[in-house]
Computed example of a mutant assay.
Amino acid sequence: MSWWHWLWESEWHGILLGRWMVAVLLLVMGLGLAGLLASLLSRFFYLSLGKTQEDITRRELHRLMRPAWLFAILLAVLYSTLHVLEFFHLSTRWVDWIHRLFQALVLLALGLLGSRLLAVAETILASRYQQANEPYKLQLVHPLFTLGRILLFVLMGFLVLETTLKVNVGPFFTTLGLGGLAVALAAQETLQHFFGALAIFADKPFQLGETIRLENGTVGTIEKIGLRSTQIRTLDGLLLIIPNKRLADSPLENLTRTPRRRVLFRIGLLYNTPETTLQALKSELEESLGQLPFTIEKPLICLTNFQDSALELTVVTFVDPFYRAGNSSTPLSFLEIQDQIAERILRTVRRHQPQTDFAFPTRTLYIQKSSTGLDALSEVSRSGK
């Protein structure tokens, strides 16, 4: 008998030394080559994606899938090692529990693999929607896939209870259905906000980064659209958090999607303004405002009303809300546009002093002596000096 045959047939703790050597070899090779096998699996998976490779890199795919590959490989190595060692000749009861434990670990490995596959799909869809400039779909990707991963692990948890611990989960599902009904009734308002979010995602009245005006006149930029509420940053820098149901049911204006915006000013002029001065003022305002770089149409200047103390002149200017001055990367704000228009109006009107000026409320008292000798006061409201 050769020494090799003698060494192979010898026993240690009731197990052949040959089996011990095979077990050690499996462990060493498994631990040493696990990373390489994971890389090869990721490479084969990446090659199988075909055209989808444009939406995810091989390194990113390997980063997402590596935990699942390593867990599955190490689980297989550990089970193979125990099987070679004949489970250390443990009793049937202990061997049964070990098998149950590995069944649970296999289900966990499947859950982890499914979770990683969902992460890969999430990355691919997010890349596509970002390239297509579809922020509505992009912001739905993460919460929906997160919900999918949670449901997957819950399902695996029920399978572990059913197969490993032999727990009957049927009554639990019945209780869960009754509890779900109670929760649905209690969370009715939250569900309304959730369906409001679905209505916003479906109708797309606004997108991330767009500026809207609410029903109460508040103007702000959309920062985040959640499943329950929407966050809006106002011009004052305040963060408004509005429930989706309220936002979906109320009228609003999407200022970003408006190709032009109207700037309206109503000014009052003195009643003693000569007609020639009024016509000259209107012509100068039309020319001056038309020279502004963000004006996209001929301004409209009209005498629209006779107020108690002033001639009302209405100035209407249509502007480009996305105008960028010079090399600026951001457009002028609406307040900056209003400011430039107001300055032009102010300078133009003051150039026509003293023939005209901005009017302000005045009263002139006329004292008249009546036939009975008593003084009577009559008030006549008009534009005064």
Rank of each mutant, 00 (worst) to 15 (best):
residue 90 L to Y: 05
residue 377 L to E: 07
residue 90 L to I: 11
residue 245 K to T: 02
residue 361 P to H: 08
residue 250 S to K: 10
residue 31 L to A: 12
residue 232 I to T: 01
residue 296 I to R: 05
residue 14 G to Y: 02
residue 105 L to C: 12
residue 326 G to R: 13
residue 37 L to D: 01
residue 78 L to P: 00
residue 298 K to F: 08
residue 99 H to Q: 13
residue 195 F to A: 02
residue 212 I to L: 09
residue 57 T to N: 08
residue 368 Q to H: 08
residue 309 S to P: 01
residue 181 L to V: 11
residue 346 L to N: 12
residue 63 R to D: 15
residue 326 G to D: 10
residue 4 W to G: 05
residue 215 E to W: 07
residue 106 V to C: 02
residue 294 F to N: 08
residue 241 I to M: 07
residue 214 L to K: 09
residue 147 L to N: 08
residue 240 L to I: 01
residue 222 I to Y: 04
residue 7 L to G: 04
residue 380 V to D: 03
residue 191 L to A: 10
residue 370 S to W: 08
residue 287 E to W: 10
residue 385 K to D: 14
residue 159 L to A: 07
residue 195 F to D: 01
residue 317 T to R: 07
residue 148 G to M: 15
residue 102 F to D: 02
residue 169 V to Q: 03
residue 242 I to G: 03
residue 240 L to E: 01
residue 86 E to I: 02
residue 90 L to V: 10
residue 98 I to A: 13
residue 35 G to T: 07
residue 24 V to W: 11
residue 93 R to N: 06
residue 206 F to Q: 01
residue 41 L to V: 00
residue 303 L to Q: 10
residue 113 L to W: 13
residue 46 Y to R: 05
residue 5 H to G: 11
residue 32 G to Y: 00
residue 334 F to C: 02
residue 379 E to M: 09
residue 92 T to L: 05
residue 384 G to Y: 07
residue 378 S to K: 09
residue 241 I to L: 06
residue 299 P to R: 01
residue 187 A to T: 10
residue 67 P to C: 07
residue 267 I to A: 05
residue 137 K to H: 09
